[in-house]
Amino acid sequence: MSKLHTVNKSPFDKNSFDSCLTLAEDGSAVLLIEDGVYAAVAGGDVAARIADASSRLKVYVLGPDLAARGMAEDRIADGVSVVDYGGFVDLAEAHDAVHSWL
């Protein structure tokens, strides 16, 4: 069963992002939204965790939430793809279930 995981908290503030990466099955999708998008543009440890995750999971980030926070799309980590609201809907539709990490 394929799953779409969404993370809406900053990786520096809550451990939702880490828990999601720990428990998400290989091959499932992770979409970073709201304050979760900071993970896609971070440095240091978080950048390493994103790089590691993108090798076994499909990692997406919601473009409008990046733009709201002043983060340019050219700063996001390699292996992370940007989607718009339509892409969010497509992802939800393409997977059997959505798991929200709050």
Partner: peptide
């Protein structure tokens, strides 16, 4: 700042 990949230019 550094942990988040930011600089003063940001």
């Amino acid at each position: 700042m550094e942990e988040r990949g930011l600089t003063t230019d940001d």
